[in-house]
């Protein structure tokens, strides 16, 4: 298996608080890797370091073996990393299609072009992407009036616009109704499988994680405490402790039996 995204000894300290402590892992090609852990475990900090929003105190991030540590988010995006946010980030003053067109404009290096009309540029491509996430019937709607679930779909289309090799999704189903969650995750799985994109995602809903992830990593208090297949992680006593409240767990242990190792 090819290593797509790799974290080596990633550490982030905010003053005396070590939010992420010596975390190493890698996302392999075509896999759906879940990063889970209780609130405050350091998932978002980890994500922000991978995506360039935060500079790690120590450690490295490699994309296809090339160092990308500390690069600006837009540079990391250029190298083929797409991202969706926990709280959706879209352009509320534009239409749904224009939101995706904007990403395409950037991808085709037309940001500084002064030739109108932007609303006609790459519209076909945008419509294709939007059809894929089942938003075809809403392409010309005002983004600000979209339902939250649809905004999440829109974000997925935006993140896929530059044909990324890997997608980082921070809580892709947060804030959605249970039935919507399942639908969205099924859609995500289908889309990325058909496009051969790898995914690293964080998630609070364990049903979603167990149903869709190929492999799971568990973060607690900044440290990776378990990693492996869905079943192995499920049975891991440390993980059960963390989630069911058996006190604090430090140290790291690899669960065995991952199909990807």
């Amino acid at each position: 298996m090819k290593r797509i995204l790799e974290a080596r000894g990633l550490t982030k300290a905010f003053g005396g608080l070590v939010a992420v402590d010596d975390v190493s892992f890698c996302v392999q090609s075509g896999e759906l890797l879940a990063l889970i852990g209780p609130n405050g475990a350091g998932k978002s900090t980890c994500f922000n370091m991978l995506m360039g929003q935060l500079k790690p105190t120590k450690g490295h991030v490699l994309l296809n073996g090339v160092e990308i540590t500390g690069l600006a988010p837009r540079r990391i995006w250029e190298k083929g990393v797409g991202r969706t946010f926990q709280i959706t980030a879209t352009y509320p003053s534009m239409t749904v299609a224009e939101n995706v067109q904007m990403a395409l404009i950037s991808h085709h290096k037309k940001v500084y072009s002064m030739r109108p009309f932007a609303r006609e540029l790459y519209r076909e491509e945008a419509i294709d992407l939007l059809s894929m996430v089942e938003l075809f019937d809403q392409i010309d709607r005002h983004c600000a009036v979209l339902a939250y679930g649809d905004l999440k779909r829109l974000e997925l289309a935006i993140a896929l616009a530059h044909d990324p090799i890997i997608l980082l999704m921070d809580e892709p189903t947060a804030g959605m109704a249970p039935s919507e969650r399942i639908k969205l995750m099924q859609l995500t799985t289908e889309v990325i499988e058909s496009r051969g994109v790898s995914v690293l995602f964080t998630e609070h809903d364990m049903d979603i994680v167990f149903a869709h992830a190929h492999r799971i990593m568990v973060l607690n208090r900044g440290k990776l405490i378990a990693e492996g297949s869905v079943d192995a992680v499920r049975r891991d006593p440390h993980v059960q402790d963390v989630y069911l409240g058996g006190g604090t767990v430090f140290g790291r242990e690899h669960a065995s039996g991952s199909p990807y190792q």
Binding site: M51, A72, T90, M94, M102, I105, S106, M114, H162
Partner: peptide
């Protein structure tokens, strides 16, 4: 220019800096 890609990029930066930066702007 407001209707050109540059104008749109400017609005994108205004609407959501996070999204704009995360898509290469």
């Amino acid at each position: 220019i407001a209707h050109s890609p540059f104008g749109y990029s400017l609005r994108a930066a205004r609407d959501s800096e996070r999204r704009a930066e995360a898509t290469g702007i």
